[in-house]
Design a protein around this nucleic acid. Structure first.
Lengths: 141, 141
DNA sequence: CCAATATCAAGAATAATTCCAATCTAGGAG
DNA sequence: CTCCTAGATTGGAATTATTCTTGATATTGG
């Protein structure tokens, strides 16, 4: 079994991140995301965080999420026009959205592949961010 | 030069599409999208359409766009949390968002490539829709 | 031509997110 | 240790894109 990506303890703190003050709120938001590696919306994060910080406001959750995203500790993912979701998998990856269950699975690139191997990029394009989302079904097994 | 994708006359009508009633509003929305192959928002489409149909409402533009999308005549594309944009290129393709100019370029797949060539898909996944968005810059030429 | 159905328009309603102003807090300077 | 300040948090208001609702219109099949 391959745990390459998921080996950080669920309740560990992010290592010191320059310019980021680790407040209790940010810590808990981060902990909650690491603890259950689904792709919760800000609202879902809020619900989960409230178990330990009952007074935290949704605005603060949004702030924390934004800060963590800005510092590269988590990723924000958008599907269609739905609420943004947040993902603790910082590695470059895509998502597969199972229409039947609603579940979202991380999709990794095969090792060694290069964007320009399969896409006709405009000449001189410098890619800073990639977003790949697939929608479909898992065949009944 | 390769015009494979863009050879439909700009003001042509979509060929008969089962179950789609081609009203003047839908026709004009479609015409406007075909005429300028950028990626306008519903609002931009509304402005453009109003030149010929001054009384059309934004709600109708939304309705028309949704209908055209449902019938596969245009595609809806979402970048981040911005307004949806609409794209007359129905072929499977991705988008490159130039951070500097804000321009959006269609990106084609290299011929013959297969999703599973570069992505680790979950076993049994049947992909129904692909969305690939790149963000970056065009190197100064 | 008439009834059934689909479309349109205008504005109200919704939902996610951001903004704002008023506290609050942590950490460094003294 | 205490004060000061920058940054963080809060709750609620504001914003924005989009959808919904309702009544009026138009179109089509019979």
């Amino acid at each position: 079994m391959n745990h390459r990506l998921h080996d950080r303890a669920a309740n560990s703190l992010p290592e010191a991140c320059p310019g980021l003050r680790m407040t209790p709120q940010r810590q808990e938001v981060y902990r909650v995301l690491m603890g259950r590696r689904d792709h919760p919306t800000a609202n879902e994060v809020h619900s989960r965080v409230k178990k330990r910080l009952p007074n935290i406001s949704l605005a603060t959750v949004y702030n924390c999420l934004e800060t963590l995203v800005d510092h590269g500790l988590i990723r924000q993912v958008n599907f269609e026009r739905e609420s943004s979701r947040y993902c603790p998998n910082v590695k470059e990856h895509g998502h597969f959205h199972d229409a039947a269950s609603g579940a979202i699975h991380d999709i990794e690139f095969k090792p060694g592949v290069n964007l320009s191997d399969f896409l006709d990029l405009p000449p001189g394009a410098v890619i800073e961010d990639i977003e790949i989302t697939l929608r479909g079904k898992l065949a009944a097994s």
